[in-house]
Structures are given as structure tokens and as C-alpha cells.
């Protein structure tokens, strides 16, 4: 019967290769598993229980420096003419995702003092691209109307941030125009499926 191993005369270089492969290919995995095991054991006996809170936001990533824009937020609350984010949502259609933002002035502009407000979105950045199209919203007179902007995004794209400029023109003694440039970061935008 043919039981003789066919490869007993491996060449020397092959022997070296096998040795290296065994050391790297099995040694590293064994080390990884040992680390994992000791990590699990020590965190079980000495560590605190894992927590799932978000109370650590402040210490985490830099994106927290800029507050995220959420539905219900008031934007430009430091101006005479703050804007309320009435709606912020992502509508999912089979072939496109629409990012919809509805803004509404918190109160009527004081006619004496203000001519109104112009809000310009200079771009909208998603994970993969930046839509460089200007979108402008204008409130004048006594309108408290809601204004809506819709961006049509390719499927799968979520809004990340946008560059906006806010211009309000005042007519009182302070006069002049107030120009503010801001950077909006969008956090979680609730998504809804549409057909």
C-alpha cells in the first residue's frame, strides 16, 4: 500500500518558508486570541460594566464642536430674526433620496427695523460629493411663511454639512447689513420611505 509520504524531501527554502508561515500565520492569531481572552477576563473582573450612554459626547470626536442641526432647533437665535427648523427629513424613493428642510421665522420681522432675511445655502455636502448649487430663501414683509428647500440626492447619500450665509438688512440706527457665514452640521436626519 502506498502510505509513503510524498514530500519528505522538501527543499531547504521550503522548510524555511513553512517555518515562517507557521510563526506568522498561526503565531499571530494565537496572540490575538490570547489578548482578547485576557481583555475579556480582566474587563469582566476588574472593569466597569459596559455602558451605552451618549453622555460622553463632549469628550469624543471633534464634530461635536459644532452643534448638530436638528428638527425643532432655532437657528441664528443670536440675531433679530431667528429661524425655526420646522422639518428636517430624508425621504427615500427607490431611485433618489430627498433631503427636505423647512424653515420658518420665529416671529415677524419688525418692519421698522428690518427689511427681511436672505438665507443662502452655498452647497450641501454628502458622504460622497458636494452639491455646489446655491439655494436661496428670502423672507420679507410680514411673512411668517414656511419655506422649504429640497435637495435631490443620489440614493444612499445622506446630508453631512452645508455652508450657509445669512443676511439680514436693518434699517434702524444701527443700519447696514448683517452678514453671517455659518457651517451647518447635520446629525441624524430621520428618514422615511416613500413610493
Amino acid at each position: 500500500m502506498d502510505q509513503v509520504p510524498q514530500s519528505s524531501n522538501q527543499s531547504d527554502s521550503n522548510k524555511w518558508l513553512v517555518r515562517i508561515l507557521l510563526i506568522i500565520g498561526i503565531g499571530i492569531p494565537v496572540l490575538i486570541e490570547l489578548f482578547t481572552f485576557s481583555g475579556l477576563v480582566s474587563s469582566h473582573f476588574f472593569g466597569e460594566a459596559p455602558s451605552a450612554t451618549n453622555d460622553r459626547r463632549s469628550e469624543t470626536s471633534a464634530k461635536e464642536n459644532i452643534p448638530l442641526v436638528k428638527q425643532g432647533d432655532t437657528l441664528f437665535s443670536d440675531t433679530d430674526y431667528p429661524l425655526l427648523v420646522d422639518t428636517l427629513r430624508l425621504e427615500i424613493y427607490p431611485d433618489q433620496w430627498r433631503f427636505i428642510m423647512e424653515l420658518k421665522p420665529l416671529w415677524k420681522p419688525n418692519r421698522e427695523r428690518s427689511e427681511g432675511v436672505k438665507l443662502t445655502f452655498q452647497n450641501l455636502v454628502t458622504q460622497q460629493q458636494s452639491l455646489e448649487e446655491n439655494r436661496v430663501l428670502v423672507w420679507t414683509d410680514n411673512t411668517l411663511d414656511e419655506a422649504e428647500i429640497t435637495w435631490i440626492l443620489p440614493t444612499g447619500q445622506r446630508p453631512q454639512n452645508a455652508k450657509v450665509t445669512y443676511r439680514s438688512t436693518r434699517q434702524d440706527s444701527l443700519t447696514g447689513t448683517l452678514d453671517i457665514k455659518r457651517h451647518f452640521e447635520f446629525g441624524h436626519v430621520p428618514a422615511r420611505y416613500k413610493q
Binding site: 455602558s51 451605552a52 451618549n54 469624543t60 441624524h188
Partner: peptide, 26 residues
């Protein structure tokens, strides 16, 4: 396996959430 212990879901294109962070067991 370790990610699973931290609660990271499978079948998820972007397992990054805006309302919370995951915390590894170690």
C-alpha cells in the same frame, strides 16, 4: 465578535449613529 459584544449591528452600511456611540468591552 468583539464589535458584536459592543452591540454593533450586522447588515448595516454605516454603523455610526448620531444619537449614541458604541463602547467596546475593552
Amino acid at each position: 465578535h468583539r464589535g458584536g459584544l459592543a452591540g454593533i449591528p450586522r447588515r448595516t452600511a454605516e454603523p455610526n449613529y448620531s444619537q449614541f456611540d458604541f463602547e467596546a468591552v475593552f
